[in-house]
């Protein structure tokens, strides 16, 4: 390090010491921005973004979800296995099976050329 560089770095150090509070604020803001960047990257890359109905424009979907929400206790993992226990499971499972097969979710129909009024050629 030559004399000129040494004088410059000493000057910079003096400036930092002189404005300690401002330096602290700038560093704190930079750290906060970096952490926000990491959080948003995780929010996007994990797929949480796609499942977040609190985004603007999803008010209708949000209402539907709230309306449909109900508590389902499920089947107990403890206890004996006998005819009554198996019957209980059968009843619970059949109800969910009915829900699962009730609709043809994500069918290709919605994005066909015909549905968007585009001729095939």
């Amino acid at each position: 390090m030559n004399e000129h560089e040494h004088t410059e770095s000493t000057g910079a150090m003096q400036q930092v010491r002189k404005h300690q509070f401002a330096t602290f604020l700038i560093v704190a803001i930079l750290v906060a921005l970096f952490l926000v960047y990491i959080a948003l990257s995780l929010y996007h890359s994990s797929g949480t973004f796609q499942l977040d109905l609190s985004r603007p424009g999803f008010a209708k979907a949000r209402e539907d979800i709230t309306r449909e929400r109900q508590v389902f206790e499920g089947y107990s993992k403890d206890g004996q296995i006998n005819a009554a226990a198996l019957k209980e499971f059968n009843q619970l499972y059949s109800q969910e099976l009915k829900d699962a097969t009730a609709i043809d979710a994500f069918s290709g129909e919605a994005l066909t050329d015909a549905s968007l009024q585009i001729p095939t050629n």
């Binding site: 499942l51 109905l53 999803f58 209708k60 979907a61 539907d64 979800i65 979710a105 994500f106 919605a110």
Partner: peptide
């Protein structure tokens, strides 16, 4: 469709 799919995805 985007909205109804978001609901459907959460529901399913």
């Amino acid at each position: 469709l985007h909205q109804s799919d978001a609901f459907l995805r959460i529901d399913r």
